[in-house]
Design a protein around this nucleic acid. Structure first.
Length: 322
DNA sequence: GACTAGTGTCGAC
DNA sequence: TTACGGTCGACACTAGTC
């Protein structure tokens, strides 16, 4: 098996870094990017926070109110709503630069990617180190963003730390331990490689397998009509994406997040694939009706999901089969 | 028991 | 004292079939 060299590139505190980019004065202040819910006030959660904010114990996923408490005595702390269009724009530019450095490029999310650079580095850690530095410089020059590039060297260090010397040492570890030490992607790759399975650790991103929308209700409720109104809006939203991406779906699901934040889901497989908004609406409303039977706990958030997607090749594709 | 399709839950980002 | 988003993929579980 040839030596694989894989880069994991990610932008730390990406959204906050984007905000610093358009307003450099923020750099010295705690910057907290928030997803505010429809409930108004400070209802919502933290998407990301820069290092200054993290010093105060502010972390992703934390309730906004909680985070505000943490910096009560810090008047310069800045809380901003997310601006996903702007972040997507910057991400696209950055990924454009990054992908040029890969033999195989895998986009994972707005702020993360995997690069297989085995060919261009010929498996050498020395040239991989140089390439990583060039990549960081190129990203900085073109976007002014800083990113971290993790490479196989680090994997070697972790092996040494964990006193792993042989393949049979590796085989003793379960995939969860490996994932927690190396990240899911590399963890799974090591797990397979130790068992003689040489799957590519990096592969071109496939099409999405599901689309979903979720919203926080104005108030907790188990009233069908109240929930149905939001659900219909969510259906229309998902449907717009379906049309834009020219896909059909075969499975429809709804999701409740209950007032104690526990989750409940219900889904249904359709007889045929479709892109019909009517069918999406009808099915999800039916699932809502069924889910509310015997539902005791009020619902806080409501979501809809379509999956089992397939691409429609052309508008006339269906008629062509008849 | 092995396999699969369908369903529900969990957690990363 | 408590506080709580949105989107996605992975995977575990179950029931049906052979």
């Amino acid at each position: 098996m040839e030596q694989r060299v894989v880069f994991h590139v990610d932008f730390d505190y990406f959204y906050a870094q984007c905000e610093e980019l358009r307003n450099p004065e923020l750099k010295t202040k705690p910057v907290v990017v928030c997803v505010f819910s429809d409930r108004g006030g400070d209802s919502g959660a933290i998407a990301t926070a820069n290092y200054v904010a993290r010093k105060y114990g502010i972390k992703s996923g934390m309730p906004i109110r909680f985070a505000k408490k943490r910096v009560e005595q810090v008047p310069e702390a800045v809380f901003l709503p997310t601006d996903f269009d702007y972040y997507a724009d910057i991400s696209e530019k950055a990924m454009d630069v990054i992908s040029k450095y890969a033999d195989i490029f895998e986009y994972v999310g707005k702020d993360e990617a995997y690069l297989d650079v085995s060919k261009r580095t010929e498996g050498s850690f020395v040239s991989a180190g140089h390439l990583a530095q060039q990549l960081k410089n190129a990203v900085r020059n073109s976007t002014k963003l800083s990113c971290t590039v993790g490479i196989g060297k680090k994997t070697e260090e972790i092996f040494a730390q964990m006193d792993l010397k042989t393949i049979s040492d590796l085989k003793k570890l379960d995939v969860f331990t490996l994932n927690s030490k190396f990240g899911r992607k590399i963890g799974a790759y090591i797990y397979n490689a130790a068992r003689g399975i040489d799957d590519d650790p990096v592969s071109q991103r496939q099409e999405a397998t599901q689309y979903s929308r979720i919203t926080t209700l104005k108030q907790d409720s188990i009233d069908y009509d109240f929930l149905a109104k939001d659900l219909e809006r969510l259906c229309e939203d998902v449907h717009a994406t379906i049309l834009k991406d020219n896909v059909v779906f075969k499975s429809v699901g709804i999701q409740f997040v209950q007032s104690d934040l526990s989750t409940k889901t219900k889904s249904k497989m359709l007889k045929n694939s479709t892109s019909s908004l009517d069918e999406l609406r009808k099915t999800s409303l039916q699932l809502l009706h069924e889910s509310l039977e015997g539902q005791k706990m009020p619902v806080r958030r409501l979501g809809v999901k379509v999956s089992e997607l397939s691409q429609v090749s052309g508008q006339d594709s269906i008629t062509r089969y008849f």
